[in-house]
């Protein structure tokens, strides 16, 4: 034991390599150290922030978590704060329904658009279309909300709902139980339009990471452009496409204002895309700060925020794991 402790490692390395490992204390080196530490602190900030937010939410949710079993809160289907009933299940379901419809509507056209832009489009078209798409991402959500209210809700009410009622009425997820236009489909359409620019932009970037050498190798043996995309490019970008979808879905999970303007805001467990719903973000935004005299109301809303945060975290962690697995399995 003593012998081991006596070995002066820096000295040994010095002897072996002929170089000194002692800290250099010139002013350049000190500056460098200072810069590295400063940047490290700022890199750490976001991580800290997530921790702090989680802990704060947990602390504020504590009263209600103590008063009710977790399963009653998560899977309870009745939301009557005045009666002391706090079931989050309708809101959790509402969040998933709206997000799922939004993502399902957005993803297919996004994939086609990004393939076209990245693989087929001429430079000129690309340099016009890309900025316009990026601009769409900059439109404030409330504007999308107004558009949804004035255009999409009536469209769903007057066109889609009657059509669905006539042709798909027997399928429960397409049946029209609440003919107002406000509901999951309207919210999904608005969400799809909102997240599309983001998804396209990320997918486009991912397509451009595939080296042209690979495309040329395929074209050189006489493959068509579509064969090249299908056989060479798409397998390469599959994990990235998934990542783009996850990014869009995360955005959709948390989207508040545009959704709450068109979704109907009725706390029920939806069974059809024409049903109204009440996603978690809408619940929090609509109610926080009002009727705070109801016992545990404040705590209930903050634990709803905590549930939303946990859903988004789990969703992202799962998808990161899946993407990593896909990357490992792929040749590269």
């Amino acid at each position: 034991m003593n012998q081991i402790e006596q070995i002066d490692i820096p000295q040994v390395i010095e002897k072996m390599t002929g170089r000194t490992t002692r800290p250099v204390t010139t002013s350049r080196a000190r500056q460098d150290n200072f810069a590295r530490r400063t940047f490290f602190v700022f890199t750490l900030l976001p991580v800290l922030l997530i921790l702090i937010v989680t802990i704060a939410l947990l602390a504020r949710s504590w009263p209600i978590l103590k008063a009710y079993p977790l399963s009653d809160l998560l899977f309870g289907t009745v939301w009557k704060p005045t009666n002391g009933q706090f079931g989050f299940w309708p809101f959790i379901l509402g969040t998933f329904w709206v997000t799922a419809v939004g993502v399902l509507l957005a993803v297919p056209p996004c994939i086609l658009t990004s393939i076209y832009l990245a693989e087929y489009a001429h430079t000129k078209l690309r340099s016009t279309a890309k900025p316009i798409l990026d601009l769409l991402a900059a439109i404030p959500p409330v504007v999308y909300g107004v558009w949804g209210l004035l255009a999409i809700v009536p469209f769903v009410d007057k066109v889609l709902a009657p059509l669905s009622d006539r042709w798909l009425g027997s399928v429960s997820i397409f049946s029209v139980n609440q003919p107002t236009g406000f509901g999951i489909l309207a919210a999904g359409i608005v969400l799809a339009v909102m997240i599309a620019p983001l998804i396209i932009s990320v997918m486009y970037e991912i397509f451009s990471t595939v080296p042209n050498d690979l495309r040329h190798a395929s074209l050189a043996v006489g493959a068509t452009q579509w064969q090249t995309i299908r056989n060479i490019v798409l397998p390469q970008v599959a994990p990235g496409i998934l990542a783009a979808i996850v990014l869009g879905a995360s955005r959709a999970l948390g989207e508040t204002i545009a959704v709450l303007m068109v979704v109907g805001n009725i706390p029920q467990s939806p069974t059809s895309i024409f049903d109204s719903a009440y996603p978690l973000p809408a619940l929090i935004a609509n109610n926080y700060g009002e009727m705070m005299s109801i016992p545990l109301y404040d705590s209930a809303l903050l634990s709803a925020a905590l549930v939303l945060l946990v859903i988004i975290l789990i969703f992202n962690i799962l998808s990161i794991l899946i993407i990593q697995r896909m990357l490992r399995r792929k040749w590269s």
């Binding site: 080296p211 050498d213 190798a217 050189a220 043996v221 006489g222 493959a223 040749w331």
Partner: peptide, 29 residues
């Protein structure tokens, strides 16, 4: 045209698949 006129590129560009599948690629196309 490109089937009749083959190209050996400046940098080797193996397709991201197995050795076997690389040779089969064009025949399959």
């Amino acid at each position: 045209v490109r089937k009749v006129v083959g190209l050996l590129a400046q940098r080797p560009s193996p397709l991201p698949m197995s050795i076997y599948d690389n040779v089969v690629y064009g025949m399959n196309i």
